[in-house]
Design a protein around this nucleic acid. Structure first.
Lengths: 227, 227
DNA sequence: AAAGAATCGAACCAATCAGTTCGATTTGAC
DNA sequence: GTCAAATCGAACTGATTGGTTCGATTCTTT
C-alpha cells in the first residue's frame, strides 16, 4: 500500500538493473514453475517447491510475480505462445492440399502430444472451473486459433476449386480431431505415459487426410447427409 | 483392516442398520460431493464443504468413506457407471449404419456435453497426473469402452458387406471424435458455458456421419492415403 | 575498493484443511 | 416407552501452505 510512487521508477535510478526485471531470472523461475506445475498440478504445487526448483529464494519469487495465480497464468501464456509460433510456421503454403494437410497435421499432433504440452493442457483444464478466463484465453489462442488457420487455408483451396467445403471452420476442426484420434485423449487421461511414435502419428494423420479428402475432395457429395 | 469379517455382515447383528451402510445416506453424500467436486475441483473442495452440501456431519462422512481420495474415486466410478449404462443402451442394433450411427452419435454427444459429465471430465483430467490409475480406469471404462462398442458394431457391418473398413477401432474413434468436433473441446476449457443445443448436436453428428460414409461407405477407396 | 541494490535464506504468520474426538441428540427395533 | 446404535455438531490437532519480513550475502557499477 505505502509504495514510493513519487520517485520516477521508470528506469533504475542510474543505470542499474531493476527490482524484478532480469529476463534471465524470470525465465529461470518460469522454467522451475513449469516443472512443478506440470508434475503436480496447480494446487499441489507449492511456492516453496517452485522456488527450490528454480534455484531462487522465495522472496525473489514474489519480487518477480505477484502471487501464485499470476505466476501460473504468465507461465501458461508463455507455453501457449511457443506452441502458437510452432503451429503457425508449420502451415506451409503448399498448393497441394494432401501434402499441406499431411505436413501440418503431423507437426501439430507432435507438438500437442509432447510431454509438456499435455501436462499444461491437463492443468489448464483442471482449473478451468475456477479460472474460466484462463481456460477461455488458452482455448481461443490455442486450439481455436489453429483451427482458424486451417480454415483460412481451406478457404483458399475452395476458392481455387481444389476442395468442396461448405463450412470450412467445421472442416478444419474435424481435420484436427481426426489427426488426433486414438492419440491425444488417452494421453490427457494419462492412460498412455509416452508420446506416440512418429510412425504412429504419420499413420493416423494419413488416415485423417484420406478421410478428409474422401469427404471434401473434388467428386464427393458436398451437402450434409440425411437428417 | 480389522473389520468384523466373522459375523455374517450381510444384515446387521440383529436386524439393525450398520455403521456406514445406509445406501440412501451414501447416495446423499455422493450427491453433495458431486456438487462440490465439480464446482471447485478436487483440491479446492474441502471435506467440510462436502459435509455441508450433503447435509451430513463430518463424522458421518468419515464413517461412510475412508478419506477424501476414496470418496472422490467412488464418486467418479459412480458417474462413469451411469454414463456407461446410457451409452450401451443407446447403441441400438439398427442394420442401417447411417441410422444407427446418427442415433448413437447424438445420444453420446448429448451425454458427454452434459454439465456434470464435463465437470467430471475436467476434474479427472486435472488429477490424472497425480492419480494415474484413476485416469486410466476412467478412460478405459469410459471413452475407450464406447469406442470398442462402436468398433464391434462396425465389425458386423463390415462382415455384412455394408461398410469397408480396415481398422474398425480407429474408425470408431474417428467417428466419435467427428461427432464432437467444435462441441466438446471448448466446453472442456470452459470457453463455452452451456451445453450445445440439440440442433447443433444433430448438425455436427450429421456431418460426422456424412464424412464417415464418404470414407467407409461402399464405393470408397479403402486403403490409407499416400504416405 | 566501495557503495548500493538485488538476492538469498531462514524464520515467521495467519489461514486452511484433512481427519479425529466426544458428548449430546436422534432414530428405529423391540 | 426403552435402549442401543447411528448420527450430529462443534471443537480440536497437526500439518501444510501462501505470503511476508529482515538481516546477511552477492553482484554490478563506478
Amino acid at each position: 500500500m505505502s509504495e514510493i510512487s513519487e520517485i520516477p521508477v521508470k528506469t533504475g535510478p542510474r543505470n542499474r538493473r531493476i527490482a524484478g526485471a532480469d529476463p534471465d531470472k524470470r525465465r529461470q523461475i518460469l522454467d522451475g514453475a513449469l516443472q512443478v506445475f506440470t508434475s503436480r498440478g496447480f494446487d499441489a504445487a507449492s511456492m516453496s517447491d517452485i522456488a527450490a526448483a528454480a534455484n531462487v529464494s522465495k522472496g525473489t519469487l514474489y519480487v518477480y510475480f505477484e502471487d501464485k495465480e499470476h505466476l501460473f497464468v504468465d507461465l501458461i501464456q508463455r507455453e501457449r505462445e511457443t506452441q502458437k509460433r510452432g503451429a503457425i510456421e508449420a502451415l506451409n503454403e503448399d498448393s497441394d492440399p494432401v501434402r499441406a494437410l499431411s505436413k501440418f497435421g503431423f507437426c501439430i499432433v507432435r507438438v500437442i502430444n509432447d510431454e509438456l504440452a499435455v501436462s499444461a493442457h491437463r492443468v489448464v483444464i483442471g482449473v478451468a472451473e475456477r479460472m474460466p478466463d484462463l481456460g477461455r484465453e488458452f482455448y481461443e489462442n490455442g486450439p481455436m486459433l489453429g483451427s482458424r488457420l486451417i480454415a483460412r487455408y481451406l478457404d483458399r483451396m475452395v476458392a481455387e476449386g481444389k476442395l468442396a467445403i461448405d463450412d470450412t471452420y467445421l472442416a478444419a476442426v474435424q481435420f484436427l480431431d481426426l489427426c488426433q484420434s486414438t492419440l491425444t485423449r488417452p494421453r490427457l487421461f494419462n492412460a498412455v505415459r509416452t508420446p506416440p511414435s512418429e510412425d504412429e502419428i504419420r499413420r493416423v494423420v494419413g488416415e485423417a487426410v484420406a478421410m478428409f479428402m474422401a469427404r471434401y475432395g473434388r467428386g464427393a457429395g458436398s451437402q450434409p447427409a440425411s437428417r
